[in-house]
């Protein structure tokens, strides 16, 4: 007689929403598994952990995790998350979205939240394309890669996301791929324990659109590419980790520093200026 055991992360998922919408071979589910393991391993307070997504394939992550979860507008997960965190600083706020959502339409919010050092973890699943709308060009689509709106191959310069985050003030910056599941889960668990604007980029396959158009094979072929072309360099200078089409991928933890958060700075400044009249802000009752 066989018994069916629950998957160890089932309790962290909204099983009543399965099956999910992601394609076979997509990497987003892999990242969610790592995220769930990281939640388990870090013993995070699940009632205080909230997840905010924008729009797109990765934007659906919020809907599958059994946490307080917010599926917002395209590009605006970060400012929504900013409001959550500032109104209730006890919350552990995670933004989970894609490259198009976070760095194109949401690019302005991304750089300013990093500059302000708003205390949140931003996870970006970078599959170099807009999957939900059919495979268009994003700010990370590498030179010469074909997209539905770049039928002759992209000729735009790209964002290197770790460099962007680092130069805007992020206190924790790392990059892994969906091949590096253990490293990624450890990295996420570590990032939960830090304060400030933390950023993890995850290079992830999109077999249906990005790979098919670029004749890069299926999900497994991309995994082989991730395995063979990744090189781990903790502490690498983020100026030297840019990606190009099917080139080398530098992975690892690039930045880990302590900086006062926006709320720390607010409390310090008001105290300096207003003295004892100012009562430290700890959230809205």
């Amino acid at each position: 007689m066989t018994t069916t055991q629950a998957h160890p992360i089932e309790y962290l998922l909204r099983m009543d929403r399965m099956p999910h919408i992601w394609c076979p071979g997509c990497g987003i589910g892999v990242t969610v598994n790592c995220f769930a393991r990281a939640l388990q391993d870090s013993k995070a307070d699940l009632d205080k952990t909230v997840i905010v997504s924008g729009i797109g394939c990765t934007g659906r992550v919020a809907g599958y995790l059994k946490l307080d979860s917010f599926h917002t507008t395209h590009g605006r997960a970060i400012p929504f998350a900013t409001g959550l965190k500032l109104a209730n600083p006890e919350l552990n706020v995670v933004v989970y979205s894609g490259d198009g959502d976070l760095t194109a339409i949401g690019g302005n919010h991304f750089i300013h939240a990093a500059r302000r050092n708003i205390d949140m973890l931003v996870i970006c699943v970078n599959n170099f394309t807009y999957g939900m709308t059919g495979g268009q060009l994003t700010p990370t689509t590498p030179y010469s890669a074909v997209a539905s709106t770049a039928p002759y191959g992209s000729f735009e310069k790209t964002f290197s996301l770790p460099f962007l985050a680092d130069s805007c003030g992020a206190v924790y910056v790392a990059r892994w791929t969906t091949f590096h599941v253990r490293q990624l889960a450890r990295c996420m668990a570590e990032a939960f324990t830090k304060r400030g604007f933390r950023f993890i980029e995850i290079i992830s396959p999109c077999p249906t659109l990005y790979q098919r158009r670029n004749k890069l094979g299926d999900g497994l072929s991309f995994m082989k590419y991730l395995k063979e072309s990744s090189e781990c360099k903790d502490g690498a200078d983020t100026r030297a980790v840019a990606l190009d089409f099917q080139g080398k991928i530098i992975v690892g933890k690039f930045v880990d520093r302590d900086q006062p958060t926006w709320l720390d700075d607010m409390n310090r400044r008001y105290r300096e200026k207003l003295g004892d009249k100012y009562e430290e802000y700890k959230g809205i009752k």
């Binding site: 605006r76 409001g83 959550l84 965190k85 109104a87």
Partner: peptide
């Protein structure tokens, strides 16, 4: 949208 985050908090 920041105000919505604050309201839900």
């Amino acid at each position: 949208i920041a105000i919505y985050g604050a309201v839900w908090a």
